[in-house]
Structures are given as C-alpha cells and as structure tokens.
Nucleic acid binder design. Structure first.
Lengths: 245, 245
DNA sequence: GTCTATACACCGATAGAC
DNA sequence: GTCTATCGGTGTATAGAC
C-alpha cells in the first residue's frame, strides 16, 4: 500500500515470496517447512508468519499474483467474443477454448514466469492441501459464473445439469493434463515424447481441447445406464454440430 | 498367515484397520493423527506402527482390500470380452466401459462396503498425499498394461501416443467425478440433484461414460494449435464410428 | 510376536522483548 | 518489523515388559 520507507522493509517480504515460489515448486507445499523456507530467504522464522499470517496464507499469496492475471484474461477473452458475436450465443467450442486456452496463453507470455506458475499449479493439483482448492474456487467464483452463463447460452437445448456435469469432467481432465507428464508416466509407465519448451504446452493444449470438445458434444446419456453392455439401436441425435467452431 | 491363537492378537490389528477406514473417510488422511486413531481403536500408539510400519502403510492396507477386488473384476471383465470377441479387436467403447464401469459394479456389490470404499477413494483423490497415487499405480500396473494393449488393438489406426494421452484425460475426468459432488458444488457453486442411494453412482457413470466416449472418439488434434480461434475448413474425419457399441 | 511406555526430531504458530 | 523462546502438536523409533 504505502511507499517503501526502507529497503529492508519490502525486501524481506519479497525474499520470502521468492523463496516460497521456488521451494513449493521444487518440493511441494507439504514437503516444504517454514524453517527451511525462512532459512533460504535469509529471514527469521517468525517473519514469515508476520507477513503472511500462516503457511497457507503465504501459498495463497504466491498463487494469487498469477491467478489474477488468469482471471483477467478469461474475462477479457469472453468479453471480446461476446462483443464480436453481437448478442447471438457463442459456439460451445468458443467458450471452452476461451476458458482452457487461457492457460496456454499464460504459459506463452512467459515474461512473468507463467510457465513456472503453470508447473506450480500442476504440482499443487497433484498434492492439494484441500484449502488450495477452496481458495482457487473462491478466487474465481465470478469468472466461473460468467462462463457458466456463456455455456448455458451456447447450449440452450441441453439440460443445464448436464452442462454442469460436463464442465466438471472437463475441469478434471484439464487438471490431470496440467499436473503433467510425470503423473502420466508414473501411472501408466508409458513414455510420451516431450520437448520441454513452450511447444510442450501447445501440443498438450491441442490434444486436451480436442478431447474436451469431443466430450462436451457427445450424445446425452440414457437412464438407466445399461450395465451389462448390450447392443442397442441408434442413440439419440447429438445436440451440437461436430464441426462447428 | 497363522491361525489366531488369542482373540486380542487378531482383534487389535483389525480394530486399527476399522478405525483407520472410518477416520480416513471422515477426516481425510492428513486430517487424522495416529494418536487419535490409536485412541479410537483402543490400542497403544506404537501398536499401529508395529502392525503396519507407518501411517502410509496403514492407509495402503485399508485401500488394498478393495483395490484387489477392483483389479480382479477389471481383468475378469476384459478376459470375458476378448473371449467373446474371438480374436477380433474389441470396440473402444467396450474397453472404456469395462475399465470405468467396474467402479460402478464395485458400488453396486455393496456387500463388503464397496460404496464406502468408493467414497474413501474419492476423498483420497481430493487430498492425495502423493504416495497414494504412486501406490495406486503400482498396485494396478498389470491391469493398466492389459487395458493399454486392448485400447491399442481397438484403435489400430490411431497413433499410440494419442491413445495414451486420451486415456490420461479419461482418468482425470473420472477422478473428478468420483471425488464427488462436494467438489463440484464447491468449485462452481451449482446445485446438482442427487439422490444419495446407489442410483447416484449409476447416473454419474452414465454421464461420465458418455463424456469419456465422446472425448475418446473426437477428431485428432491438429498441430500447431491455432491459438486465436479462427474459422477453419472441416477437420479430419473421426477414427471411430459415433454409434458403435 | 504382541504390546507398552517413553523419547526424539520435527512441525506451524505465537507471545513478548527489543 | 524483527527476533528469541517456547508451546502444543505431529509421525516415528526403540527398549523392554509380557
């Protein structure tokens, strides 16, 4: 808020933030102790709690910086799309691409360490301390609400509960994708080619987007679900054009 | 291994397991202390480490019982399908339904608390201590390998790396789905109707399966990914019939 | 083998002196 | 703002009683 009166005043706080970002990424949230963090930042242990209240508060501050940029871009993108559409509903694919594509943009604009943030986010999603999910949800409540309405408008003939579920499935798939190749290799034992540059995220997003749109446009489920798979007649028609963009 | 010589011998170990299953479900893994667990089980603190080596070892033992049944069913189902197909490759939907549908079967056969296990698994996926994922992966390595081959055979014309990625996306979507309605409501603030009986899992699986199959059968991605969404010509054809079952 | 009592090293948080 | 000292908590290890 106020101007820095002395150099040590602001530096100490920033050194803690820097050390936190680095250590949380390298060792995870629970794997990093406040004592190690204070030591690497060159500050006293109690200084960390003075500036950020708690370990959780420190983590939230680390995430918030980049999350705000992400939220801003998501809102801005959706605004631009709706303005260009001029009152007509957007295509579902446009909404999905705006929401999840913003993650790729973040990794591209690497000026302020967007890639690092994305890796931290992935690492965090792999070992969420619980409160982090709640924090992420709270931080983006208005953004999600905007995209919810956009999806409803884009799919007027689809029951809203189905849209909500599929959006949730999409979030899950995206989380796993962001959590990274490590998990994939760990769970499956499969090797997947990856160049470690920014191209990595680009190819990942292309694959993810294709999958998400396929899932979003899938035929609606039938109830009750036929447990032992039997041959049935043709299902109900799709509710969205396959090729629409 | 050996027959129980005294009642206390076996009872103590089982009481720990029972208390662990109950508390881990109610409070999560990290939210449960070994002292509280030992107290509720009516045993000494050190007895827990004597029987299970560590807190992680205890959690693994809690999960293993049900996981073994899950693996067994997954292998048995795939065996039956391949036998019925008589050497011809399965349909992708058959493989996916066999793999993820087994979760629903587990919840149905509630004789041995399958539903409880599924909720514990969901709870666990929401706050995974990291080692849990590794444990799940190791425990099911052979099962995943079998399904990998089945998917490769079912989709001979699709590059294997794409199949691997989409399988990963499917795992992510399914994890979120299992993690349950709580997370969905937390993140989105949306209310979703749910009767709390076994019907709940049935409707969930129907929705999940429709989404997964849609994603699996989506057109393959194009590289490079067109960042600012533009209108393009028709994409490449799908690699699987929309209606095949 | 089964279990108990105890101790250890570490953690995050905080009160209070400076 | 920064520091020291300390508190109650954690998971774990071990010596020894039965």
């Amino acid at each position: 808020m106020s101007m820095a009166k002395s150099t040590t005043l602001k530096d100490s706080r920033d050194r803690i933030l820097d050390a936190a970002a680095r250590l949380f990424l390298a060792q995870g949230f629970e794997g990093t102790s406040m004592r190690q963090l204070a030591s690497e930042a060159g500050v006293n242990l109690a200084a960390t709690n003075y500036h950020f209240g708690s370990k959780e508060g420190l983590m939230q501050e680390v995430l918030r910086r980049h999350l705000d940029r992400l939220s801003e871009e998501r809102l801005r993108t959706l605004d631009a799309l709706e303005r260009a559409a001029g009152g007509k509903p957007l295509k579902p694919s446009q909404v999905v691409e705006a929401f999840f594509g913003s993650l790729l943009h973040l990794a591209d604009n690497d000026a302020e360490g967007g890639t690092t943030f994305l890796r931290l986010l992935g690492r965090t999603l792999t070992e969420p301390a619980g409160f982090i999910r709640a924090f992420l949800a709270e931080e983006h409540k208005d953004v999600i609400e905007r995209y919810r309405q956009a999806l409803f408008n884009a799919l007027p003939d689809v029951p809203r509960v189905e849209i909500v579920w599929r959006f949730n499935f999409m979030l899950g798939a995206a989380s796993y994708a962001i959590a990274g190749t490590d998990t994939l290799r760990l769970v499956t034992g499969w090797e997947v080619e990856e160049s470690d540059g920014g191209e990595r995220f680009e190819r990942l997003m292309a694959r993810l987007m294709a999958f998400l749109l396929g899932g979003l446009r899938a035929p609606l489920p039938e109830f009750p679900y036929p447990l032992p798979a039997k041959n049935r007649g043709p299902g109900q028609p799709e509710f969205d054009s396959r090729r629409g963009r």
